[in-house]
Lab assay of single mutants.
Amino acid sequence: MSIQHFRVALIPFFAAFCLPVFAHPETLVKVKDAEDQLGARVGYIELDLNSGKILESFRPEERFPMMSTFKVLLCGAVLSRVDAGQEQLGRRIHYSQNDLVEYSPVTEKHLTDGMTVRELCSAAITMSDNTAANLLLTTIGGPKELTAFLHNMGDHVTRLDRWEPELNEAIPNDERDTTMPAAMATTLRKLLTGELLTLASRQQLIDWMEADKVAGPLLRSALPAGWFIADKSGAGERGSRGIIAALGPDGKPSRIVVIYTTGSQATMDERNRQIAEIGASLIKHW
């Protein structure tokens, strides 16, 4: 067993022997301040990774656009098919120029040779490549099948209805392509620590998230040296922004954090800054 596999296998073990965790309302004060600064709703939840206990939450059962955070769930569904012998990570998928959609920095470079399922998941999570996500959605049967996968996990809230990039439209009061912070946090925890996926697939999923290259201005910008984070960000229309993450000190994750916002007129930089400040408060009061 590799060191990384050992780390993920012992996530519940280490967490069980940690000192009790206590909620700190100071972080919620910052979440509410972010709402004021952005002029928009902000949803927040913080779960203990081992027990699933909610440590703090704000608007945990209000719907927010998922945006690209759905790509972690998508690759979880792909990995479940791999575990069941219905898919192979090494299978190569070929596609054409007509398949390319807006923001496809990886797939646009491989029109000639195609990409493997493993490479597509890596591109979808680490670079948020939209064509990679659409190609992977095709392998599982489309958005409705991802929703069905989530329902089978016990998540009857999260739903995907459309493809990239239309799913980022974020129309107010439109339930399409949305989740709730509580539902997303619980589902992410199941994917990373539950028995739904094999140990190898859980490790692969967290490795992809740990290698995320496009979430630097968010929670990662607030992390002290030595902290662990595996995350996936999302951005959408109407001032929408979000991030889902597993993080913790001492090089291992111990909490799940989900943050979503929508309806702001603020710039992307300002949305990023507010999420980073929430992260800084979380870490300060850990």
Results as ranks from 00 to 15, higher is better:
Ala132Cys: 03
Arg271Ile: 06
Ala225Leu: 07
Pro253Gln: 06
Met153Phe: 08
Arg159Glu: 13
Met66Lys: 00
Gly142Arg: 04
Arg63Ser: 08
Leu74Tyr: 01
Gly142Ile: 01
Ala230Arg: 01
Ile256Met: 13
Leu73Gln: 05
Asn130Val: 01
Gln265Met: 10
Ser254Cys: 13
Asn152Glu: 15
Gly154Tyr: 05
Gly239Thr: 03
Ser51Ile: 09
Pro143Cys: 11
Lys252Arg: 09
Thr186Trp: 11
Glu108Asn: 15
Leu192Arg: 01
Gly216Asp: 06
Ser201Cys: 09
Arg238Gly: 08
Glu166Cys: 11
Glu270Leu: 08
His156Val: 09
Lys284His: 13
Ser254His: 09
Gly236Ile: 02
Ser80Phe: 12
Glu145His: 10
Thr69His: 15
Glu61Lys: 12
Glu270His: 06
Leu49Asp: 04
Gln37Pro: 04
Trp227Glu: 00
Glu35Ser: 05
Arg118Val: 10
Cys75Ala: 13
Asp174Asn: 07
His151Arg: 09
Ala123Gln: 04
Trp208Asn: 03
Cys121Ile: 05
Pro25Val: 10
Ala133Pro: 03
Val117Phe: 04
Ser281Asp: 15
Ile256Arg: 01
Gly43Leu: 00
Arg81Val: 08
Arg273Gly: 12
Arg176Gly: 09
Ala124Val: 15
Leu160Glu: 02
Gly85Trp: 10
Asp207Phe: 09
Asp207Glu: 10
Leu135His: 04
Cys75Arg: 02
Leu49Cys: 06
Glu277Val: 06
Asp129Ala: 02
Lys53Gln: 13
Glu108Met: 15
Pro65Cys: 03
Lys53Leu: 13
Ala170Gly: 08
Glu195Asn: 08
Glu169Val: 07
Val258Lys: 01
Met180Ile: 11
Asp207Val: 10
Gly279Met: 09
Gly263Asp: 11
Phe64Ala: 01
Asp83Glu: 09
Leu136Thr: 04
Lys144Glu: 10
Leu73Asn: 05
Lys232Arg: 07
Glu195Cys: 13
His110Asp: 05
Val72Gln: 03
Pro249Gly: 06
Leu197Ile: 07
Asn168Trp: 03
Ile244Pro: 00
Ser254Phe: 15
Arg81Ala: 08
Thr267Trp: 12
Ala245Gly: 12
Ile54Gly: 04
Gly154Phe: 04
Arg238Lys: 05
Pro105Gly: 05
Lys213Gln: 06
Asp113Val: 09
Thr112Pro: 13
Phe70Ile: 15
Leu79Pro: 01
Tyr103Gly: 11
Trp208Arg: 01
Met66Arg: 00
Ala280Thr: 13
Leu136Ile: 13
Met127Arg: 12
Arg41Leu: 12
Ala183Cys: 12
Arg162Glu: 05
Lys190Leu: 15
Leu120Trp: 01
Cys121Val: 04
Thr138Asn: 15
Lys190Ile: 15
Ala222Gly: 08
Leu47Cys: 15
Ala34Ser: 12
Asn50Tyr: 09
Pro217Lys: 15
Met127Asn: 15
Gln265Pro: 08
Val106Trp: 15
Asn272Thr: 14
Asp36Thr: 14
Ile171Val: 15
Val42Tyr: 15
Pro224Ala: 08
Glu145Tyr: 08
Asp36Trp: 11
Ala211His: 15
Thr178Gln: 03
Ile259Met: 11
Glu108Tyr: 15
Ile206Pro: 00
Ala148Cys: 08
His285Cys: 09
Arg273Leu: 10
Ser264Ala: 13
Thr112Gln: 09
Gly154Ile: 03
Lys190Phe: 15
Leu199Met: 13
Pro217Leu: 11
Leu160Lys: 01
Leu199Cys: 13
Ala211Arg: 14
Ala215Ile: 01
Gly114Ala: 08
Thr107Trp: 00
Glu270Phe: 05
Val257Thr: 12
Leu192Phe: 14
Leu223Pro: 02
Asp161Ala: 08
Gln88Leu: 14
His285Phe: 07
Asn173Arg: 09
Leu191Cys: 12
Lys232Gly: 01
